[in-house]
């Protein structure tokens, strides 16, 4: 096997890019789970829809940047509708009910995508400005992938500022730990739940558009990655955003390195990581025990 430091570094970079997609998906899942205790299984389908809608907005406008903004907004809107009309009636019931519902929704959406857009994948070209490769010193790395890393960093910082510095962020942080006291202090959490579900879905849509030029657009594109993202959430600790970031990047690296050094292991390595982490720390890196109660 050809091996040198430059190859390793470029593989680490590839892992970082994959990790950012996990991070974006896991952040949405974790936000939604942390506040609403809903395991949103339709997240992968929202990611897929983000890619398709991005593709069509790009087709209409010929402008990648508009697609990058509009598709997540549309997904956010779809998230609002999903919370309001499908998930909300299930609050107060067992945690399995919204899980089954969103699982069903994800099947419907994948099937609908096959019907509407066909089973063939689409090719999504990165914007011309990011088409080339950049010399990193040790290797040439696609400019678009560097952009994905930077864009994720911006989103993570923006989300952090939103949660730490705004009033709504304060309510979300409090509601994640004790929804009842927040309501007893006069705050209507229904609106906050709605909004957080929308934000989570918008993040899935963003991940879909960002991933599309690297991974293609096809109806099943969200099926595997959503499961891997669930693993990220569990490894990071259910409901922990810091955990989603750390575990997302870690699993991105693990998958990338395994694909390179031991390709046969690539499909199961995420689950191995999960098993090991859960054996050592049952609530994940940053999880608070008892969140599932």
């Amino acid at each position: 096997m050809p091996f040198d430091a430059a190859t390793l570094l470029s593989q680490l970079f590839t892992g970082l890019v994959l990790g950012t997609i996990y991070v974006l998906l896991a952040l949405g899942l974790s936000l939604i789970f942390g506040l609403l205790t809903v395991v949103n299984f339709s997240h992968g389908s929202f990611y897929m829809l983000g890619a398709y809608l991005g593709f069509f907005v790009l087709g209409f406008t010929k402008n990648f940047w508009i697609a990058l903004v509009v598709a997540p907004l549309l997904l956010g809107l779809l998230g609002l509708l999903t919370e309001r009309w499908l998930v909300r009636p299930l609050y107060g019931r067992s945690i399995d009910d919204p899980l089954l519902l969103t699982f069903g929704l994800s099947l419907v959406l994948v099937e609908a995508a096959r019907l509407v857009w066909g089973k063939m994948g689409l090719t999504f070209d990165p914007p011309a400005a990011l088409a080339g490769a950049v010399n990193l010193g040790f290797t040439y790395f696609p400019a678009y992938r560097l952009f994905v890393i930077a864009a994720t960093a911006v989103v993570v910082v923006a989300l952090w500022l939103f949660l730490e510095r705004t009033t709504l962020g304060l309510v979300i942080r409090a509601g994640t730990r004790d929804a009842l006291i927040v309501r007893a202090l006069g705050i209507n959490l229904n609106l906050v739940w709605l909004l957080v579900f929308g934000i989570g879905c918008a993040l899935a849509g963003l991940a879909g558009v960002l991933a599309a030029p690297m991974r293609g657009v096809y109806p099943e594109m969200g099926v595997t990655i959503v499961i891997e993202s669930f693993v990220v959430v569990v490894v990071g600790g259910m409901g922990s955003l810091l955990g989603a970031i750390v575990a997302g990047l870690l699993i991105g690296e693990v998958v990338s390195l395994t694909t390179f050094f031991a390709p046969k292991m690539a499909d199961i390595v995420v689950f191995l990581v999960m098993a090991v982490v859960l054996l050592v720390r049952p609530s994940g890196f940053f999880g608070e025990a008892g969140l599932m109660e």
Partner: peptide, 9 residues
């Protein structure tokens, strides 16, 4: 922040 939460509404 706990106090601020109580003053929001």
């Amino acid at each position: 922040e706990n106090l601020r939460l109580a003053m929001l509404k």
